[in-house]
Amino acid sequence: MKRTLLPLVSGLLALIFDVGFGIGGAHAKKKARAVAPAAASVAAAAAAPAVPSVDVPGERKLLLGADVDRAIGAARKLGTSRARAALDTLLDALALGLSPRVAAVAVEAAGAHAEPRALDVLLYYATHRQVDVRVRAVEALGQFDDKRARVAVDRAYADAQKVVRAAACRDAERRKEKLAGPKLMALLVKGDEATSPALAAIASPELARQLAELVGIAPDALLAETLGRILARKDLGKEQVYVQIVESLGKVPGDEAEVQLATYAGAQEKIPRLSKRRAQDLLEQRSQENKGTP
């Protein structure tokens, strides 16, 4: 069957663009003006490497074709292009519906364009029923400074699926989104591993103190790993802050806390530090306690 768009479908697309996803035409231009410069900078950064030449009509045919693997390849190629038609093709295809495997790649590819007119489609796909598609949409939306994009990423923290929540956590880590602190801590308590690097990335002395209060509430290993990651940061300020984090780590039960203390105590540094000595002391103390335990 010949896979060309029918006039009927063109009309349909126009209908969807204008009413459904709300993208295209003047609406899109208006959105473009509203998007924060960050999106433009992302786009600029993405455009910095040599942009490969892509046969958009050819890739379009493949994207809409029945061969899923070839469609995925086409979506990837269209994502590398910075041509307006490439993004249009991706958005058209997503609007008309793609197999979930293809859609996941197409969403990522559309996000790579970092064009405001992709926002409505990405927002829709951030609530897609297939988890992988949702993950890619959240990751793509993370590249936008648009308020609606931020709301969508924020909602992803409460998603039922761990992998989607992890996507939101990675976004917080990448953006060093300090406002995400309470949600990340709540997810840490529930055992979401992706919170650890994110919390470490946004940690402040105050956040480290709040984390210390989660001893016995959050999973021990995850909390210890998080505090260990925070200790690895060099920019937390006074030595006393590190000492306090070490003390907190010392209160966390389990092997992971000892691993983190040992890692910290053993790290090579030019100047001897109080916090490292304290880490060593705590390790020895725990070692003695372990020996005394029958």
Binding site: I16, V19, G20, A95, G97, A103, Y124
Partner: peptide, 17 residues
């Protein structure tokens, strides 16, 4: 509800699930 109905149908018509 029409736009949402259309979008729902189009997006999921291709979903094997």
């Amino acid at each position: 509800a029409l736009p949402a109905l259309r979008t729902f149908l189009l997006v999921y018509r291709t979903d094997p699930a």
